[in-house]
């Protein structure tokens, strides 16, 4: 039983990490907290569902198509709304949250509620790890999570655009003096964040149902992971995902599943009182040393 909980705890941790990666990427590069993140997640879910059931596309086309479309929605959000608010953190939060609310509540208005809104799993079947049975979809989530983290690391450290991302993230004016186009990079950061969010939705949603409320939950989870890990820190996201993911699963196991949400909220409160910049809020530490 302990081992089973551990396996499912790890799966839960990877889910949290996947959900938070995109939010963290956007914030880390452009300093924009994309509160429409949950809406993009749900948009992908319903989008794939519509492409599958109304348009009749096969899953292997519908899923990548929605990843691309959601990335474009992120870019559009920057071009149309955020570009005029750059640098005003409160306005960015209000604007993105407003757009998110509108999208989510529009789906509710259209009547996208109920248990028939599910996505088929990309992989069917299960495997056993010792005495524990794990369905292949959950195994796939872990594989996608690990691969994506690796690919993302390679991308930001070894490609031209990735290095430009790191430059803008650290000092916008210096990066601009080297020929990096600040607005374009910020737009890409929202597009990449949206794309990552959509990828997470495509692999995670098949293990549950698509609902409007999932949008709010996902946003809360992404925020919790980023606050605990330290906003903008990739290592922080991974460590925080595992702390929260395992804590959630063990709490659900030994105290009851209705306590699960409390874990996230308590973690946010604890971190904000003890270490407000998060476990890996490194930038400050460096400044203090100089």
């Amino acid at each position: 039983m302990f081992l089973g909980t551990l396996v499912y705890g790890i799966v839960n941790s990877v889910i949290l990490a996947l959900v938070a990666l995109g939010f963290n990427l956007t914030f880390g590069i452009s300093g924009i907290a994309n509160f429409a993140y949950g809406a993009l997640y749900v948009l992908t879910g319903y989008g794939v569902w519509i492409l599958l059931n109304e348009v009749g596309l096969p899953l292997f086309l519908a899923a990548p198509a929605m990843v691309v479309l959601t990335a474009m929605a992120g870019a559009l959000l920057y071009r149309v709304v955020l570009i005029r608010l750059r640098g005003m953190a409160i306005s960015e939060v209000i604007a993105t949250f407003g757009v998110g609310l509108a999208v989510l509540e529009f789906f509710r208005y259209l009547g996208f509620i109920g248990f028939e809104y599910t996505l088929p799993p990309l992989l069917d079947g299960s495997l056993s790890i010792g005495p524990v049975f794990l369905d292949l979809q959950r195994a796939l989530i872990v594989i996608v999570g690990v691969t994506l983290t690796g690919v993302l690391w390679l991308f930001t450290h070894h490609t031209r655009l990735g290095l430009a991302f790191r430059g803008i993230a650290q000092d916008e004016h210096t990066a601009m003096c080297l020929g990096i186009h600040s607005d374009r990079v910020a737009m890409f950061s929202l597009a990449f964040g949206g794309g990552l969010c959509a990828l997470a939705a495509v692999v995670i949603l098949p293990i549950g149902t698509i609902s409007v409320d999932a949008g709010y939950d996902v946003l809360l989870e992404a925020l919790a992971v980023c606050i605990v890990g330290g906003l903008g820190s990739a290592v922080g996201v991974i460590v925080a995902s595992f702390i929260l993911g395992l804590a959630q699963t063990y709490t659900a196991m030994y105290m009851g599943s209705h306590w699960m949400m409390i874990v996230t909220l308590v973690a946010i409160l604890l971190i904000l009182t003890i270490r407000p910049s998060g476990l890996f809020g490194k930038q400050k530490e460096l400044e203090e040393r100089i």
């Binding site: 430059g167 000092d171 004016h173 003096c177 490194k282 930038q283």
Partner: peptide, 11 residues
């Protein structure tokens, strides 16, 4: 090259 030695401190 801006004043006050602008570099990317985390890299």
């Amino acid at each position: 090259c801006r004043e006050r030695h602008p570099i990317f401190p985390e890299s």
